[in-house]
Design a binder for these strands. Sequence first.
RNA 1: CGGGCUGGAGUAUGCCGGUAGUACGCACGCUUCGGGUGCGUGUAGACCGGGUUCAAUUCCCGGCAGCCCGACCA
Length: 434
Amino acid sequence: MNDLRTTIAYFAGPAQKAYNSGMRQSKLFSKTRREAPSDEVAKNAQLLIRAGYIHKEMAGVYSYLPLGLRTLNNIAAIIRAEMNALGGQELFMTALQDKEVWSRTDRWDDEKVDIWFKTSFKSGGETGLAITHEEPLTRIMSEHVSSYRDLPVLAYQFQTKFRNELRAKSGVMRGKEFLMKDLYSFAKNDEEHKAVYSKVRDAYKRIFAKMGIGDKTFVTFASGGLFSQFSEEFQTLSDAGEDVIYVDEEKKLAVNKEVYTDENLAKLGLSKDVLTEQKAIEVGNIFSLGTRFSSQLGLTYTTETGAKEPVVMGSYGIGPTRLLGVIVELLADEKGLVWPEHISPYEYHIVSVNQDEDIVKTADELYDDMVRNGIEVLYDDRQVSAGQKFAESDLLGITRRIVVGRDAVATDMFEVVDRATGAITKVARAELTR
RNA sequence: CGGGCUGGAGUAUGCCGGUAGUACGCACGCUUCGGGUGCGUGUAGACCGGGUUCAAUUCCCGGCAGCCCGACCA
């Protein structure tokens, strides 16, 4: 992709294989820092900046450097796989929004939605930066969907969303600009919608499990915002969270404080006795939209009997940039970042222990072999002390570290250290290069 | 949006109405070589505008930017 939106558009492509699988750390432009910047309090942003994954551009606005982008793309890849498995069709919508379509649903006015970034065209007229995409996608669908035979449809994208938050905080967990995977479903009726909705809910559970935060993530009953009375959130327990939820550990369900009433508890079959109050961060949200948007924007279809009916919609969001922050908050330790296997920017981090000729030669050869076999590996080939390399390697948090020292030269067996557990195993070269 | 705080080398900081100090980083040399090794030399800095003053990085006002608490958070 070669247009001005390359970085954003990148998320829409089959990202991973586009990378060269290897990187020499002496060539990596991002550097680590000993200290966190004084203007960051959030643990996630402090560590991500120290490790050179992100750059803070402005309050609540972050750039993703090579390591951060790789990590983000890995998160996106996990989500994409599940969306495709659902039959989701990926598209990529524009961030610039047409005032006209949002006016029709009464969501353009600043009195109704106060987080718009709005600007104007030189040629006249206003536009806004997308806060979400129900309106434009519903309009697109109205040009393509006209028969019951066309339904159901699931369409999704990875897109930058902009929200003019009064106060950004919590590092990348709540920015003014962030990445969102938004899926929208279009169904013939409530019954079909419910079936789709339930499949998406299951897919979300699998996604968070793969991210390594499944056991701390709860389906949470919450308010429906502008759309409907209620929605379901996926809330991950974390002291860094902004929400308060009441959790039933046994049933893996929770209730957001905002709808924590006796009536709602009864409806959900939850008992106050077993619920515990916890802080949590919202990592996903699923909504039944009914026919609100389809009615207002004229998205109808013809039934088998020739009648016209509005399409029943749902929308389902996950914020990859927020997830990145949540994973840091939950898994990082006192030494630095710790990435789950499928999210780590590289599978392996080779660390050569000194500049002795035979050690450098052995490390070089191992690196070349791994790269040739498409294994994603970062190689610390810098001329710095072993201690510094280890400390920085811990900070970077790559899943597995391969230490190349004297014994590796002698035996051709390599010490592989698991970043999360610290467990050390000896692995033969053939196994590492597959 | 209400309340509070801050603004100095690339980063983190000490002191201060009168020549801006330290650590890390970076460059060079030596040293070390399995947990940010040690030493030396060098490099580099007061957000913007106005006011008070003999003199402002320091005090005052305004702007801009950042942070914290609250409110807000499709």
